[in-house]
């Protein structure tokens, strides 16, 4: 039998997460290909972090349903179902095959251990490196993420680093074992644009060299456009659009995606204090108040009562024959297409 190279690395099916109350993440389905960089965007509270943490097995007291299937390591075969995986097996996968850069870098570094001992710990757990080779790898990692004095940095405690430096250390820890899949939750938000560009080049370079796939969570659409092959938009716990990046930025199909793009300030449109950004009115419905119709309806300029409020629009494929997959959740997508 020939090996199917097109099968995804991660396949999330109907993932639903709640914390005893209403569903926070609701019937989430998407795929990440080998070596693919996917930007996960969407309003604050839409479930980007909770969904990722659920796949990583890092949510406590959560009720998780559905499936998240990780394809076997190259050549090893055998898929792993991550939902419900026993904690011991999950720990063995985490760091080595799937890894995460957390949204809050302070809370995820041990304040009592030097940067050096935290990096060595990860390298010992996931690689055969020892002694001078281990130290050399730790230094190389810090250099890779743009730390100017890597040897000095090894001896420091986290509190001695600026926010931007901590963020870079977090990235070094997450990529130390060259995982197959990296969840990066707002990894460049605390960084100035120069370091941000450096980190984006680094992450993209890693993908090119090692084939690491990445889920890149961000509010910054310019950053998403610089790094992503594909964009997935979440709104109120659901996928509302999933499109190749180049298609998404040219002609987004879902009204909420369009609202996001017009709210984002653009460097080319410097307005010198006379700016007015197009903010959509109203707010995202909270998890208990999402209703049964299109969840964007109360804010949508294109809403039509009979069509949009009748039922929840399904996620439908709108790609033409031969085109890359493109799905959208909008009852009027066809009429509204440019």
């Amino acid at each position: 039998m020939t090996r199917k190279t097109t099968s995804p690395l991660l396949s999330v099916r109907n993932l639903t997460v709640s914390f005893g109350g209403p569903d926070i993440v609701d019937d989430l389905s998407f795929e990440i290909g080998h070596g693919e960089i996917v930007a996960l965007v969407g309003e604050s509270g839409s479930g980007k972090s909770v969904g990722s943490l659920a796949v990583m097995g890092l949510l406590e007291n959560a009720d998780i349903r559905g499936s998240a299937c990780l394809a076997g390591a190259q050549g090893a075969g055998g898929d792993t179902e991550l939902v419900g995986l026993p904690a011991r097996q999950m720990r063995a996968l985490r760091g080595r095959r799937i890894s995460m850069i957390f949204q809050d870098p302070l809370s995820s570094l041990d304040p009592l251990q030097t940067i050096g001992s935290q990096i060595r710990e990860v390298l010992r757990a996931h690689t055969p490196l020892k002694g001078p080779a281990l130290r050399a790898r730790a230094i190389a990692l810090l250099e890779q993420v743009g730390i100017v004095d890597p040897e000095g940095c090894l001896t420091l405690l986290p509190q001695r680093l600026s926010g931007g430096m901590r963020q870079r250390v977090m990235i070094a820890l997450a990529i130390a074992a060259e995982p197959d899949l990296l969840f990066a939750d707002e990894p460049t938000t605390a960084l100035d644009v120069t370091v941000q560009a450096q980190v984006l080049r680094l992450l993209k370079g890693l993908r090119d060299q090692t084939g690491m796939a990445m889920v890149f969570i961000t509010h910054n659409l310019a950053v998403a456009s610089a790094i992503a092959d594909r964009v997935i938009v979440l709104y109120a716990g659901q996928v509302v659009e999933d499109a190749p990046a180049e298609v998404f930025f040219r002609r987004p199909a879902m009204p909420y995606s369009r609202a996001l793009l017009s709210a984002a300030p653009r460097l080319e449109a410097v307005m010198g204090g006379y700016g007015h950004l197009e903010a959509p009115r109203g707010q995202v419905p909270s998890p208990g108040q999402r209703g049964t119709a299109c969840r964007f309806a109360s804010r949508c300029d294109d809403v039509r009562e009979g069509v949009c409020l009748a039922a929840m629009p399904p996620l439908v494929s709108i790609a033409g024959p031969g085109e890359t997959n493109h799905t959208v959740r909008c009852a009027r997508w066809e009429e509204l297409a440019p």
Partner: peptide, 17 residues
């Protein structure tokens, strides 16, 4: 406004102006 999503960021930016 650094930590805000683009929609809320737009609202706050408009508010300052």
């Amino acid at each position: 406004v650094s930590a805000l999503d683009v929609c809320v960021q737009a609202q706050v930016v408009n508010l300052f102006v």
